[in-house]
């Protein structure tokens, strides 16, 4: 579904991504794990056109999307929940969700119902300004907003960041549920343990390079991973 080949991305002179290649097949959950600054978010930003790669290409559903304007990607079925959630803090919960369906207007009514079913807490707060939500609710809103476009591929950047352990469990349950309903997921996580648990396959990034790859299980068992990311 998504094929990334030889991405090289620079921030000024800093070589942030070095020959990154990987792929995501339909109905998979693929995780990119690695430490802070390894290039995980940079990879997602490059896929969604917020950053440009010097070389290589990104293919989504058979179409080269490496030169397409960022705002056109959502109509192709690619949704990106960015790091830090980036919901519209001054707009209401319902307005945030409507913005998610900006290119998918016919789906607003049905989509709102679907999102409120998944996240009943958002229904109670639908007319509240999003800035007043708790961190966990904001993450739910960010995921809900992305679902409003009915994406084929959902890219999640650190969905568990800054959340209490019980909320982390909830967020991962939601991801599993979305996956079981047919959404393909590309997940970026620092929380390697959780990510590997739900991922079909994973790639480990280190200083802008992919250093390891395997199924979630394999990597969770690997000594290197245990040492570096799972605390022993």
């Amino acid at each position: 579904m998504l094929k990334v080949e030889n991405l090289n991305v620079y921030y000024g002179k800093i070589h942030a991504l070095k020959d990154i290649s990987f792929d995501v097949k339909e109905h998979e959950i693929v995780a990119l794990i690695g430490a802070n600054g390894a290039g995980k978010s940079t990879t997602l930003k490059t896929i969604s056109g917020m950053l440009r790669s010097h070389t290589g290409s990104t293919t989504f559903c058979g179409e080269d999307i490496s030169r397409i304007d960022s705002y056109k990607l959502i109509t192709k079925g690619l949704a990106h929940v960015p790091e830090g959630r980036r919901i519209f803090l001054q707009m209401t919960v319902a307005e945030n969700l409507e913005m998610g369906a900006y290119t998918n207007g016919g789906y607003i009514k049905e989509g709102l119902e679907d999102v409120y079913n998944r996240f009943p807490r958002l229904l109670h707060r639908k007319n509240q300004i999003a800035g007043t939500l708790s961190g966990g609710e904001q993450q739910m809103l960010a995921i809900g907003r992305a679902l409003m476009s009915q994406p084929k591929l959902l890219m999640l950047d650190e969905p568990s960041m800054g959340l209490a352990p019980i909320l982390v469990e909830q967020i991962f349950d939601i991801i599993k549920e979305l996956h079981s309903q047919g959404t393909t997921v590309l997940l970026v996580e620092q929380n390697a343990g959780h990510a590997l648990e739900i991922a079909d396959r994973a790639y480990v990034l280190e200083s802008g390079r992919i250093v390891l790859t395997g199924t979630g299980e394999e990597l969770a068992e690997s000594e290197e991973i245990k040492k570096a990311y799972l605390g022993g």
Partner: peptide
């Protein structure tokens, strides 16, 4: 209106607005 809301979205966060499919 949809255009008006999109304007508020862009004014808050351009990149996030682009991810929603709004052309800044």
């Amino acid at each position: 209106t949809k255009v008006g809301k999109a304007m508020r979205a862009v004014s808050e966060d351009k990149e996030a607005a682009e991810l929603m499919g709004i052309s800044t």
